[in-house]
């Protein structure tokens, strides 16, 4: 599934033009992206949480050459799936 499929679902639900629906979907993801850029977490109940984590500098290794490299400190995005959704997925599989 890609963004086009989400746009189509929205189009069927709202009755706005496809163009307007595409704009809404883009805006939705932009809001989440801008929030995360500010290092603010995004919590969507029943779906999951997006949060920015700080990672300390560490020593790593180039797996191809075996050469030791320094990995600088950085920030990464993590996503934790909601327990409710995890349970739904398991129920759906059993059916």
């Amino acid at each position: 599934m890609t963004k086009i499929d989400i746009v189509t679902n929205l189009y069927e639900k709202l009755g706005f033009s496809k163009r307007e629906c595409a704009h809404i979907v883009d805006k939705f993801f932009d809001i989440i992206k801008d929030t995360l850029e500010k290092e603010e977490n995004v919590k969507i109940s029943g779906f999951g949480n997006f949060f920015v984590r700080k990672k300390k500098a560490r020593r790593g290794r180039n797996p191809q050459t075996g050469e030791e490299i320094k990995i600088t400190e950085r920030k990464v995005l993590s996503f934790r799936l909601s327990q409710v959704l995890k349970d739904d997925i398991n129920i759906a599989r059993k059916q």
Partner: peptide, 13 residues
């Protein structure tokens, strides 16, 4: 409606 539809689409998939 828009936010719910977007999230539900992803959830269903």
């Amino acid at each position: 409606i828009a936010v719910d539809t977007i999230i539900d689409s992803i959830k269903r998939a």
